[in-house]
Write a protein that binds this DNA or RNA. Structure first.
Length: 431
RNA sequence: GGAGAGAUGACCGAGUGGUUGAAGGUGCUGCUCUCGAAAAGCAGUGUGCCGGCAACGGUACCGAGGGUUCGAAUCCCUCUCUCUCCGCCA
């Protein structure tokens, strides 16, 4: 959620910036609810004060008929006002939640992902002296993927992954975990990018793959029917990213400042309905209802969250560089960063078969938009309390495997294994 | 899944329906004492919301949500979670 005080102070700006992100927010109505809510709150508090004064004047004695009658009158009035307050409050919160996070001024204004801005490219696109295949062709030929049988079992957009591709996937997770646990590597990335943050390593974490609805809503990430699977007869939704079950870990908690930053690298299987993508990316493992992902999630002080975001992007690039995959980095425009984001960056890998870059990583700069709803706060050394900031970013999804297969394919239909992954592949150079 | 017990502040732990936001202890902070530390003594130490420049005032919160009552941490109902025993299971 956005800070209501900020909205009160900057109503036009909020409307304007919301529009840039593609949200039409009725700020006037929101502020109307806000005023009404506060008026009612004041009245309710005053009545409660009267009630408490009468009650405490009893001190064990029996109240007079007169006082009982007065108390009863207050009770009735109070019940009425409390109901009004609850109703207004609900409308207020519902509307407040629709207000997106404010994009930073540096975020390019745009109306679709077409207007994302390329800020860096890295690596050499491969030149093949043969006709390159796409990853699905190679993987099916190798027996690494069985889409037909998976469809029989679970339907479209599910797949059996088998053989060396499974080993390659586990190698990717292991490489990611090792890198993010290595303080020296993290320190070097921080220094190379001129960041002023701690090099505290990431703690590996395996979160639940489901969350209660209220928790999911607090993360600002529940897209309901469109994108998320609900478990029938349970108050549970399947996570569509480890971020959904890691970011709310400190819900209702106050974290001592000295414990920050808290960095997690979490692995889960993620589930997405992928509504509205029928006919897109139907081959191979590019877009599945079920996929695996290694995700970074950080809790920081407000003053260090921006550098933390840049740090996460730098880590993503480091990981891609270690694999040797050509990529570019996009600064996402206002229309593409998503409701909770103040800024967002995508890393996209070069795919020879599509002759274009495709998304492998995303990094979200959230500020306090999630923690306000989750009530995740930090306690300063002097005792003052304020909202913590969250940042999340992909470490690895399965998509870099596509990049590896396509960019490192050989004329005879094999794939050469990136050097950094070989130790996890029993030393195999080619699969 | 069946039976029983329970859920109070950072932690432990009291709490007869009416000055209980909550005793007592621990921890933490400050001060006194000390060359210093320990010990001891004194004082302070929850969070949200509303109002206020602030000091501060009001209000809510004793797992969550409803209810009874003039008045609920205390009584009733529902739910969630934890523990013990049985069953089942990787």
């Amino acid at each position: 959620m956005l800070d209501i005080q900020y909205i009160r102070d900057n109503p036009e700006l909020v409307a304007e910036k919301s529009k840039q992100k593609g949200y039409d927010v009725d700020v006037t109505q929101l502020l109307g609810f806000d005023r009404e809510r506060r008026d009612l709150q004041t009245q309710v508090d005053q009545l409660r004060q009267e009630r408490n004064e009468i009650a405490s004047s009893m001190k064990g004695g029996k109240p007079s008929d007169e006082l009982v009658a007065k108390g009863r009158e207050i009770k009735d009035k109070l019940a009425d006002l409390e109901h009004q307050l609850a109703a207004i409050d609900e409308e207020f919160i519902t509307l407040l939640k629709t207000v997106p996070n404010m994009p930073l001024d540096e975020v390019p204004v745009g109306s679709s992902e077409q207007e994302n801005v390329e800020i860096r490219t890295w690596g050499e696109k491969p030149n093949f002296d043969f006709e390159p295949k796409n990853h699905a062709q190679i993987a099916e030929a190798k027996g690494w993927l069985d889409t037909a049988r998976a469809t029989k079992i679970a339907g479209a957009r599910f797949v059996y992954t088998m053989g060396d591709l499974v080993r390659l996937e586990f190698a990717l997770w292991q490489f990611g975990l090792d890198t993010l646990s290595d303080q020296e590597i993290l320190q070097k990335i921080i220094d190379d990018n001129g960041l002023k943050i701690s090099a505290k390593p990431f703690t590996p974490i395996l979160p639940p793959a489901v969350a209660k609805q209220a928790v999911f809503e607090a993360t600002g990430r529940l897209n309901r029917q469109e994108q998320t699977y609900k478990i029938e007869d349970e108050d549970l939704w399947l996570n569509a990213s480890a971020e959904h079950t890691i970011s709310p870990i400190y819900i209702d908690e106050i974290i001592p400042e000295e414990e920050l930053p808290i960095r997690y690298v979490g692995y889960t299987t993620a589930f997405r309905r992928e509504a509205g993508t029928y006919g897109k990316d139907t081959e191979g493992i590019f877009r599945l209802h079920q996929f695996n992902k290694l995700e970074m999630e950080c809790f920081t002080t407000p003053e260090s969250s921006y550098d933390e975001h840049l740090f996460l992007v730098a880590i993503q690039e480091y990981l891609m560089q270690q694999l040797g995959l050509p990529y570019h980095v996009l600064e996402k425009c206002t229309a593409d960063i998503g409701r909770p984001n103040a800024k967002g960056v995508d890393v996209e890998v070069w795919l020879p078969s599509q002759n274009t870059y495709r998304e492998t990583h995303t990094a979200d700069y959230i500020k306090d938009y999630q923690t306000r709803a989750m009530k995740t706060r930090l306690r300063r050394r002097d005792g003052t309390i304020e909202l913590a900031h969250t940042n999340d970013a992909t470490a690895f999804s399965q998509r870099p495997l596509i990049g590896i297969i396509e960019n490192f394919q050989t004329a005879d239909g094999n794939v050469s294994v990136p050097e950094v992954l070989r130790p996890y592949m029993g030393g195999k150079q080619e699969i």
